[in-house]
Every structure is written in structure tokens, then in C-alpha cells.
Amino acid sequence: MEVELIFKISLVIVMFAISLGIAAYATYGERKFAAWFQDRMGPSNAGPWGLLQPLADGGKMFFKEDFIPAASEKFLFILAPCIAMLTALMTSAVIPWTTDVVVMGQILSVQVADLDIGILYVLGFVSIGVYGIMIGGWSSNNKYSLMGAVRASSQMISYELAMGLSLLAIIIMTGSLGLREIVDGQTGSFLGFLPNWNVFKQPLGFLLFLICAFAETNRAPFDLPECETELVGGYHTEYSSMKLGFFLFAEYINMFISSAVIATVYFGGYHFPYLNRMISDPNMLAAAGFAVFFAKIFFFIFLYMWVRWTLPRFRYDQLMHLGWKTLIPIAVLNLLLTGAVMILKDYI
């Protein structure tokens, strides 16, 4: 019991550190990749290859003047970035990071909480995250901030439906909401030559989920809440110093968590074909699974950046058009098809 408690607490701390570390270096990655796509150098002065740039940025954020507008709601103005950061960090609690490890003769699962409701927890706390943006935008008492906040909330509500519907197809297939069951249902092979990942069984569902994940994390091409050309800086126009830093940081943490969720639900999480046959020691297998999982996560973080620097931003009516008139009908169709296949499977 005591070993388990110490293990879980250290897992929480390690995951907290990893989330922050990845978020910090995702900003570096974003700038380097942007530079690469645009044939520039990117940050290169702080440390070798500019590797210390995130630290320099963080330090700068701390030393900037912390300005609170006189006409703002002071308490809510301070609360908003805290909510954004808190909900972003909370979501990682249900993600299974790797296979079970053996510590001092005890089998421990590398997952902070294996909740019965698993994937719903992620959806719930992602949808709470929009309050940070809404409260921040409203309490700034600035029309551009308010427009950003209103856009964020309507975008969130519109894309949550299609996201939930595409996840329902996965839940029908797996028969469980728990993320560990969803991952462990993806072992073996599909059609004899493909790994048994949900992406091959649910290609349409994956595409829908990916688009919705881009919209829910407010990333380009759906970054209308912080559209610079129309709204100055969007919901965080009035923010400065580390409060602004928290908003930006929360976005990168959300990107990391949503990449982890995509990898877990559609790409087999920590599973890789033949990995469990090559390695017999459980702790080595867990380490390999962890590496595989993070390789998948990094690929999706790269995909987020790739899309951002490739596609232009949607217009606002196009965004709503896509969400309500295209994605939701396709998601319902996908759900019906999945249900039909699951019933017919028993008769064949």
C-alpha cells in the first residue's frame, strides 16, 4: 500500500514536470518548425541551437510589468489564467502512460487514476477549460477580448458534439469508457498485416476527432479566439507578464494532452507490434512502451505545428458551417455504421 502511494505521488509529480517541460519545449519546437517551413533560422542565440530559448522566454515573462486594466474585474481577471492552467494540467490524470511496472515485488499501473469514466473525464475537463478564456475575455472589459471569449465558447460548444459522437463509435467498439481498456483492446493485428489500432477500423472517426481536437485546443486553422488580424490579440489582449504566459502555456499543455489522447484512443497508446514478444522483462517493456507512446505524442504535436504553418485560418462562418453542417452529420453516419457493423459481426 505504502509503495503504491509513494509511486502514485511521484508519478503525479513526474507527469506535472513532463507536461510543463514538453509545453516549454513545444514553444521552441513551434518556432523552429515555423522557421523551417518559412526557410528561416528560428531562435538560435540562447544556448546551442537556441535550446535555452524557452528559459529566456519564461524569464522575460516573469520580469515584464504585470498590468491590470483599471476598468477590469480584478479578481476574475487574475482567476482566469489560473483556471486555464489548472484544467489543462488536470486532464492528464487518466491517461495510461505505459504497461504495468514491478517495483519492490508489487505490480503497479503507470496511470494516476484508472477511473471508470476515463474518456469522459478528459472531455469534461477540456470543456471546463473554456471558462478560463471566457472569464479572462469578459473581465478584461475590452471589446476585442469579449469577442475572443464569445468565439471560444461558441466554437467549443459546436465542436464538442462532433467530438463526442466520434468517440462514441470507439466506445461501442471497445465496450468501455476506461482509457486503459481502450488501449489494451488495440493489441494484436487487424486484417493480418496492420496493427490492431483503432485508426484503421475508424478512419472516418479519427479524422473527425482530429479536426475537433484542433478546434477544441484553439489551434490554427481554428484559432479564431485569438485571431490577430481582427481582434488584436483575442481574449488575452489585455493580459501581460506571466498571466499571458499562463494562457499561452495552457494552450501548449492542451496540445500535448490532446496528442496523448489521440495516440491513446486511435494509435494503440503504448502498444507497438511485436514489442511485447521481443522484451520479456516487465520494467524494460514498460520503458519501451513509454518511449513508443511519447514518439506517437511527439508526432501529433508536430502535426499540430505542421498544420498551423501550412493552412490559413478559417473564416468564422466557415468554422460554424464545418462544425454543424458537415462534421455532425458525418459523425452520426459514422456512429450508425459502427453500430450496424457491431451487430452484423455476431451473425457472420
Binding site: L120, Y131, V150, S153
Partner: peptide, 27 residues
Amino acid sequence: QFLFIVQVIVYSGAIMVLFLFVLMLLN
């Protein structure tokens, strides 16, 4: 647990976001 998360998603999440959205627009 299920009632908890449904309460969070439906009431605290979706419905209150709509309320807040409307009130912010009306100002």
C-alpha cells in the same frame, strides 16, 4: 462517478457556457 462527470459536462460545462455566452453578448 458517471453522474459526477455528466453533471460536470452537461451542467457546469455545456449549459453554463451557453448562459455565460448569452449574458456576455447582452452585456
